[in-house]
Design a protein around this nucleic acid. Structure first.
Lengths: 343, 343
DNA sequence: CGGGCGGCTGTTAGCGGTAACAATAGCGGA
DNA sequence: TCCGCTATTGTTACCGCTAACAGCCGCCCG
């Protein structure tokens, strides 16, 4: 009795199927498909033809197990709806594209426990490297990353201790710089409007740096307002209204991100409030969206694309090199736009 | 000579390390860690303790190869910067969270070749299912998906033939509906403003349905404008200005997405143009952003979250059941907002 | 004319788990 | 006391592929 026809549509194909179809050993097929080692032109073509006509798709699981090599890079970020992270991702994939490495994204929703779970899950696939947003992680997360024996890059933030490498900006300094610019422009009654997220450490550090700079000038926040959930643009509008009604003497509103800042700007314009004369405004991130607004909101570019690129480059570079932590600090530029009084 | 100390920080741990540390067989450790099969309480605790203290992270590659089961679901989408897809993703992960399945995202940038590569790459990891945006794929892509022997769900669109299952809306019908509403409101000189993307089939189908409905009413597009790249909000602004200058008699602007529609709305308001009296506006998608605008743009909800949920549910449900294609059509609701004249 | 070498292909032995089945122990009932 | 059954744990055989090495052949060179 002969073997069942190899065209059985049920069973998924293996190297053996291709090897039988092309009359060479599995090893040779493997070599052809990976383009590794010497194979004669004739054999190569016969194998490729067989693979193509069968519709063979290699099994990377088996391949990875045998070769102890996985072309995956884990990327752990808090959110996809923030616009900031998709842009970091662009930088990452752009750079990884040339290297044969591939990013795999995990989202934590700003939850440390979820982050721990995501990291565990990713490490269990034995990736070639990991890119993780932020420096704050659970004890277990740091331990896992440190033990993994692969390059780890923590991104976005450099105010703290990294497990291995880090690429980012100092949010503390960014907050400070913005405060200094605001004070220099003559504003004195300054309010902060932000998200209510205990785990958004970067926003926290910006606020901290901001308040430090205020203190150094003998000032303190005149008011503050937080929100969570909902449309950021709308929340920016609402919070702005609330703050201005509550504290009519406020002369500057510092937002923790551009989206709510844009909402505030639209509100002020609609109310006929003189910006930046009566009230000044500033956000953070430099999102593309701002370009379409009636007036350019003051902001600070967070170097997102560049952070993604540099992080990916570190992983790609270390591919089989030594593991040595390097910290790359980028410097955001303050874009004063039209919502801060000139000198 | 004794074995080197098992605390060697270089080598990554295996089941054997845990088994030796806890004095039971590898099989028992495997059972404990997967919570499968009967293990005595004492043994279980001993094993868990050993695993924890060693910092053992299972190797899913080996596990998947041995068990022929992979808890991954491939998700292939054209872009992350569109806001639409992150939302679909939310629906997917939300539903998958309960099932032990995990989404893995791949981005194609609206390129069919890139999509083919991404699908190939994903299938080579033998996922439990695939969710792919759109119905248009290369011949090879469709063949691979069909051959894979796993549930395939094509999302967003149902105007066409699916490989297996599909969940989405009819973009053709959506365009038609919007046109009918616009005509019913009395607008006659209608322009279209959209993206220049030959591979955005859904936008194309909307426009097609839109024009069909116009034709049925004896009308045709009075003008059209396309853009590519850049800030959508800004482009919406610029395109609107261009169209209104070129064709001053235009009385309605139909945008292919809400972002450029919002730009157009801001432009009109800034110019003091009477909306919806002199000019009516409509977009597509129902993005959250719109809530924060000074006036509510007419739009059509694309059921993004629901599409994600339903698609994930199909994959999860079929986990080990029969593979049978089902097509789920969702019906977007037209939200007239404040930018279409009332009856 | 023989050894050596390079080009090509095959063989063997896992990679680190898990399915399936075997083995062992402890216990109650006949 | 012996048997059978259940609860628990161990053994064996791969999963599909690749590293490492072995084998074969023809040709060049001394």
């Amino acid at each position: 009795m002969s073997r069942p026809p190899s065209h059985d549509p049920k069973r998924t194909l293996t190297l053996r199927d291709v090897s039988e179809a092309s009359g060479v050993s599995e090893m040779t097929v493997s070599r052809v498909l990976r383009n590794r080692g010497d194979v004669s032109v004739g054999t190569r073509e016969r194998v490729l033809e067989a693979a193509r006509s069968l519709g063979y798709v290699p099994n990377k699981i088996a391949g990875a197990l045998a070769s102890q090599r996985v072309n995956l890079v884990g990327v752990v970020i808090p959110s996809l709806s923030n616009m900031v992270f998709p842009e970091v991702l662009s930088g990452i994939s752009e750079t990884l594209d040339d290297t044969g490495l591939q990013p795999v994204v995990g989202v934590t929703n700003y939850s440390p426990e979820r982050e721990e779970a995501v990291i565990y899950e990713m490490l269990s696939w034995r990736p070639s490297g990991m890119i993780v947003a932020g420096l704050e992680h659970t004890e277990a997360s740091r331990a896992m990353l440190a033990q993994a024996g692969i390059p780890i890059v923590e991104i976005m933030d450099i105010d703290g201790a990294a497990v291995d490498s880090a690429v980012g900006i100092s949010h503390n300094r960014a907050g400070r710089q913005m405060a200094e610019a605001i004070i220099a422009a003559g504003y004195r009654r300054i309010a902060f409007l932000g998200t209510m997220m205990p785990h958004d450490h970067r926003a926290r550090k910006r606020l901290q740096g901001f308040e430090e700079a205020l203190a150094r000038a003998g000032l303190e926040l005149a008011d503050r307002e937080f929100y969570s959930g909902g449309s950021a643009l709308l929340k920016g509008r609402e919070m702005t209204e609330a703050v201005l009604k509550r504290s009519p003497d406020i002369d500057f509103l510092y937002y923790s991100n551009d989206m709510i800042g844009a909402g505030g700007l639209l509100y002020c314009l609609a109310q006929g409030i003189d910006v930046p004369g009566r009230v000044g405004l500033a956000g953070f991130n430099g999102v593309e969206l701002l370009d379409g607004l009636p007036r350019r909101l003051a902001t600070m570019d967070a170097c997102r694309l560049e952070i993604g690129r540099k992080a990916a480059a570190i992983i790609a570079g270390k591919h089989d090199g030594v593991i040595g932590g390097e910290v790359i600090e980028l410097f955001p530029t303050l874009e004063p736009g039209d919502t801060i009084r000139k000198g």
